[in-house]
Structure formats: C-alpha cells, structure tokens
C-alpha cells in the first residue's frame, strides 16, 4: 500500500470478524481510513479517528450515494447475512442482498475505480457430499445448493463474482475467499453456535474430518488480502480433527446421537439452537479444503492457531465465560 492516504470500505461491519479485521487494519496501516457499513446498529461502536461507521439499508440508492461521496480504494465485502436463526423475512433479505446487492456493489466498485475488491464467500459453496474427495481445490464444482436450495444464493453469488473477476481482470483486482468453518469467541455463526451450545451433541453414526480457522487468523487473512494476487482462494488453518474430537474438546460431557435425531432436535429447537439445517450435512460428510494455493498466496500471514488450537481456544474461552457467569 502506498504511503498516501487510502480509503477502505467494509460492507458488513457489525460482526465479530469485521470488528477484529478493522482493529488489525487500523494497527497495520497508520494512514488507512476505514468506513464500515451494516444494516444493523452497533451495540458498542468502535471509536477511532480513522474509522467511521454508517448504518445503511442495503438499497441501490444508498450504495450509489456511498460510493459517489467517498473515493474508495479497496472494498471488503463481508456481508453474507448470517445463516443462523433464519426467518422468512431474513431469508428474503439475504437472497436480495446476495444476488442483486452483490451485483450493485460490483458495478459501483468498477464505476468508481476501486483498486481491489475482496469478497468473503464460504466453503459451503462446495457442499458436504458423501462422494467428495478429500481436499477440494478451488476448481472443484460448486454443488452446495444441490441438496439445500437455501444455499442457492451463496453459490450463485460466488459464481457471479468469479465470472465478474475474469471479465474485469484488466480493470479491477478481485479476490474471492472461501474460508472453512470460522470459529471464535466473538462469533455467533452456525458452527460456533453448534460447538458451544450447552446441549452439546456429536454424531454417533458419522465422524467426518473437519477443518476450522480461528477468527483472529481469518482477520489477519482479510487484512493481508488487499496485497495478495487476485484470484480464488480456499482458506483454512493447518491440520484437521474429527467432528467428535472437536465437540469433545469443547465439551467433554457431550452426548452422541444419530444424525437423524440431531436433525429432529435441531428442527424443534431451531431458534434456540441457532444451527441451520444444511450444516448437519457437514457433520456427516467431508468437505475438506486443499490448502496449496492459500499457502502460496498468503505465505506472509502467520497463522496463530492450528485447527486443534482453534478448537482448544474456543473451549477455553467458553469455560472462562461460564466461570464468570
């Protein structure tokens, strides 16, 4: 990054991951100005002279004003509306944002001559399938929505961004990240909810190998991403564990249940459990990412937590929280 003042836009700035990423950006780049936007209001807004937060309805007009009034050099698009606690209203909002909203953001980035856009997709685009080979590279077909139509927007958004990346490769640098399960004490996504729920269960009849990345490391990856060569990257920490070990590390007293029973419990207690239905397939079948391209592209990022350490850290934080309560 040049020494001159640059301006970064973070779309989806409310979440725990965004908070950590903003902190790291501000620390690493002393001249970087950051604007964060989200549809939700912040509980405790971060106060920093170089950081501004705006609550924004994700409408075309609002985005157009935002891009025209500011001269953004980088865009970090983190705004995948959470999959947890899905109501019909939220699902509609998500579909709109993921498909039409993404297209608006891409078009505006191109029109206002943004240098680089980083899009946070997900490894859910590959889908957990019984016939997945171990280690899926970035060229593997995206089959996430074959079984779960609610993932269609996630897959379509990723595909649209990839096509757009190739169409405009001479004009704008685009980076698409497909991280594995991101876990951490400040996150409330589906997998963290599953792992940290007091009623902890692991599958009795399946035990696939899983990968994780700690929120701290994911934030470091996002910070580094504005310097990395454009392209598609799977993102994961080194190592792997079985789902049983992951659950048992966090809660040694966890029960085992057949997946069909887990599925029933999840349906009955969805609001309390906060685990989307499709995630249960990830407790049955493998969806392991190949790290080869990530390790080369993000060689400068020091991953602090291996998969096992990320799980241990989550467990440690959960125990601390319980003791405080």
């Amino acid at each position: 990054m040049n020494k001159a003042e640059k301006h970064l836009l973070i779309i989806g700035a409310k979440g725990g991951l965004a908070y950590k990423t903003i902190q790291k950006f501000l620390k690493k780049y002393p001249k970087l100005k950051i604007t964060g936007v989200d549809t939700r209001l912040l509980d405790k807004p971060m106060k920093h002279p170089r950081y501004t937060f705006k609550r924004l309805e994700y409408r075309r007009g609002d985005f157009e004003d935002l891009f025209r009034e500011n001269n953004f050099d980088y865009v970090l698009y983190l705004s995948r509306v959470t999959h947890s606690k899905i109501s019909n209203k939220l699902l509609k909002k998500r579909l709109n944002l993921s498909l039409q909203g993404t297209q608006t953001i891409l078009d505006l980035s191109l029109r206002t001559r943004v240098q680089k856009i980083v899009i946070l997709s997900s490894f859910h685009v590959y889908g957990a399938m019984n016939d997945n080979p171990i280690f899926l590279d970035e060229r593997y077909p995206l089959r996430g929505s074959l079984k779960f139509p609610e993932l269609r927007d996630v897959v379509e958004m990723d595909q649209r961004c990839e096509a757009w990346m190739h169409e405009n490769r001479n004009v704008i640098d685009t980076l698409i990240l497909r991280p594995t399960n991101i876990i951490g004490p400040s996150l409330r996504n589906g997998i963290t909810n599953y792992l940290t729920h007091p009623l902890s269960f692991y599958p009795m009849d399946y035990n696939p190998t899983v990968q994780f990345i700690h929120e701290d490391d994911m934030a470091s990856v996002l910070v580094e991403s504005i310097k990395v060569e454009p392209g598609l990257y799977n993102v994961t920490a080194p190592g792997y564990v079985s789902i049983k070990n992951a659950v048992k590390t966090i809660n040694p007293d966890a029960y085992s249940l057949p997946v069909f029973a887990l599925s029933k419990i999840n349906t009955l207690a969805n609001k309390k459990f906060g685990v989307p239905g499709y995630l249960l397939d990830y407790l049955k079948f493998p969806c392991l990412l190949s790290e080869d391209k990530f390790q080369k592209g993000f060689a400068k990022v020091k991953i602090k937590y291996s998969v096992k350490e990320a799980i241990e850290n989550l467990g440690k934080n959960l125990r601390k929280k319980k003791q405080k309560d």
Binding site: N130, D131, D205, Y206, N207, P258, F260, K284, F285
Partner: peptide, 12 residues
C-alpha cells in the same frame, strides 16, 4: 463405493 459412505455407521 459411493453408497457405502452415505450409510450411517458403515460410513464411519
């Protein structure tokens, strides 16, 4: 075979 990895318990 693919079907083996779909069946509960057997897959594990």
């Amino acid at each position: 075979e693919r079907f083996m990895f779909q069946l509960p318990f057997l897959a594990k």
